[in-house]
Design a protein around this nucleic acid. Structure first.
Lengths: 299, 299
DNA sequence: CGCACAGTTTGTCCTGGACAAATTGGGAAG
DNA sequence: CTTCCCAATTTGTCCAGGACAAACTGTGCG
């Protein structure tokens, strides 16, 4: 059994904390305190990486570094458990899915998902199955019950199922045309697909741009009146401040006739300062907003 | 007309050159030479960003920084044109697709793609339509004919079409089972999908893990004998040295019975030093390798 | 012509410091 | 007791300049 060690570059990539932050924490809080290799470069241990991941998640939840960096592994896990347990009790199939993932029974997994989709209908499937499953899988990874590779496998299968369903639902170009994307640095495509599925069910036309569209491009497209609504998603890993700044800048550069709809855990709780920005907490309220948009001008 | 300026952080993100490299180039070659904002922080212009992108691409093609950093925009474009034009003359529909993208006629675009898919069959479609289209779209972006946003739109549509096709083809779990993924930092999922489509057509079972699977996880999965072949893809943006290092490390940790198949422009020309690593230059040779694998033990 | 070896190029890491933006904690005012 | 505002602290990001190994270059010798 060797002791794998990781360069600061690898940690930045795998955990999502910049080299500068890693070095500053080491100096300020005494953690992490990596050993050094033969060149004097930092060599992080597996345990440090794991703790850093937990810390990252806690900070994304709103805690401050001074209060969580330097905590022990068990304390971090306890903190994460105490806060995250708001809505996870449901979702009975989560254990089934986790088992299929561990055994890598891809075909069976896809069949299971497709059956649920057919039984529940796309909208219900997204809201009551995919959403809680995502949470459950994320927590399972956190507890070490499944590997990253298995989380990837899950993501791939869900993507396939959702994309196929969306493709069949897409009809003629009905109103409104909704541009759907995330800003740079945003990797979690699954949330976008879930929103797209919900909207397509309601007869809207989605122009999905995938992830990481530069804000400048969005402004340029908006000027051409190629869409009626701009919908953005932010994951909790997205720096809060950058999210708000970009939103305000975009609002200024986009025609006032185009509302901006925002969602995702990275932006929850934000009270929009400008008109024409709406924050959504769940998928249902998006459906409501869609209906309101269609009735606009009547109120 | 304002002059947008970008922080060093934004440049790192958008161009893909680290802050360290940007600062070193400034000192060594005199380019880029960003102005400073009120805090003394570097503020890069749009033109510098564009030039940096061209430079990045040239370096990914194998040139050395000393010979291309500090060249003017027109010289860079000339260099790129002279080398890249090996296989681009074909692909007549590229202009049609570009037009649909510019007008954001998503539904029409998808219809067009689906029609071609039906007419040509999945395998032919991937090799003779998608592959050259990718090149053409990439070049169109380079020349400023289309925006990044439109490239994203294209990627999304292709993904949807390919994923749907793959989903319908997937049958029972036939041999071999092929694990398909990229290592960390690898974002280009399209190449993976193309390979998956090709393999599925040949009756193989693909376990697609999407992008950015840590090498350690792959080794762990391989030990469990959950698959027969490991297929990896590297884009040209992937640092050559890291690619080779990871390959060798993986080869050492994986059972000898599992061959590693590698492809993508990031690894082309690499002559494998270890047994059990095969480099593929195109999709056809993968099909051949698949047939050889099935006949293994007979030679 | 092939190969080994010295010189140059190049990316990444290091230290230590500066600083603005965000957050917190009181205390004054209503 | 609540609300608001200001000062102290926390925190992330940037900067400069230097060190160094790995990769690449080219040159001379066999």
């Amino acid at each position: 059994m060797t002791k794998p060690s990781h360069s600061i570059d690898a940690v930045e990539r795998d955990v999502g904390l910049s080299k500068d932050v890693l070095r500053k924490w080491e100096r300020r809080y005494g953690f992490p305190s990596p050993s050094r290799d033969c060149h004097g470069d930092r060599a992080y241990s597996d345990d440090e990486i794991h703790r850093l991941r937990l810390i990252k998640r806690l900070i994304d939840q709103g805690r401050r570094p001074g209060s969580v960096v330097a905590l022990k592994r068990s304390q971090l896990e306890q903190l994460l458990d105490s806060t995250g347990d708001t809505a996870s009790p449901e979702c009975p199939i989560a254990t089934d899915v986790a088992r299929l993932l561990r055994d890598r029974r891809v075909a069976d997994l896809r069949t299971t998902l497709n059956q649920m989709l057919l039984r529940q209908g796309l909208q219900h499937f997204v809201r009551n199955t995919v959403a809680p499953l995502n949470v459950a899988i994320g927590e399972a990874w956190l507890h070490g019950d499944i590997e990253i590779a298995e989380e990837h496998l899950y993501t791939e299968q869900i993507q396939t199922v959702l994309r196929s369903a969306i493709a069949t639902q897409t009809g003629a170009g009905a109103s409104p045309r909704i541009l759907l994307t995330t800003l740079p640095d945003e990797l979690h495509a699954l949330g976008l697909l879930m929103v797209e599925a919900t909207l397509v069910c309601e007869g809207a036309t989605c122009i999905a741009l995938g992830t990481q569209t530069p804000a400048a491009d969005l402004a340029a497209i908006g000027a051409g009146n190629a869409f009626d609504v701009l919908a953005l998603s932010f994951s909790s890993a997205f720096p809060r401040r950058r999210a708000v700044d970009s939103l305000i800048a975009l609002r200024g550069r986009l025609p006032a006739s185009i509302p901006i709809w925002v969602g995702g855990s990275g932006i929850s709780g934000y009270r929009p300062t400008a008109d024409g920005i709406t924050v959504f907490r769940d998928l249902d309220s998006i459906v409501l907003a869609l209906q309101q948009w269609r009735n606009r001008g009547l109120s």
